[in-house]
Each structure stands twice: as structure tokens, then as C-alpha cells.
Amino acid sequence: MGLGVPIIVPVSKPSKGAAGKTGLWRVERPVVNEDKCIKCWLCWLYCPEDVISEGDNGFPKIDYTFCKGCGVCADVCPTKAIQMVREEE
């Protein structure tokens, strides 16, 4: 077989957004009130989707491309610095 035999294996590469832009699933978006935030990073710790990082200003920054809007961050925030705001239609 001069054409060669393609070995087609189900090998997948690590990739952000492996299931697409999951931010589109969101009904409500978390919004950080930096006046109330004490940078305890519990929101980061409990975020199931790993979409919270440290922004340039040192406060939590949410990656809305992938944030599914579960609201766990708002729920665990000890100072209620994260508010869930309804996405516009």
C-alpha cells in the first residue's frame, strides 16, 4: 500500500473553550463591586469553571467568554461584593 495507512486515533488536544464559548449559556453575569471586594479570592477558589483571575488592578477579573453564570462566586463571597446581573436579551 503505497498510499500509507492513516492511523486515526481519538487523541484530543487541551484547549480552552473545548465545548465552545460557554459564556453564551449564561442567564446572569457576575459583576464584581471593587469597593466591597477584600481580595480574599474565595470566588476564585470556588469557581467551578476556573474563569476568575487577577485583573491588572489586582481585583478579580471574570472571563465572560466562558463564565457559565452559575453564581457560586456571588454565593461564597463573604462581603457580598459580587452581584448576579441579568443578561440582556
Binding site: V9, P10, V11, S12, K13, P14
Partner: peptide
């Protein structure tokens, strides 16, 4: 690091 054998759809 690769993932082997995750979900493959009818297209694949």
C-alpha cells in the same frame, strides 16, 4: 499531555 478517547461525534 493529550486526552485519549473522549467523546467523538458521528462526524469523526
Amino acid at each position: 499531555p493529550i486526552t485519549f478517547g473522549n467523546l467523538a461525534l458521528p462526524d469523526e
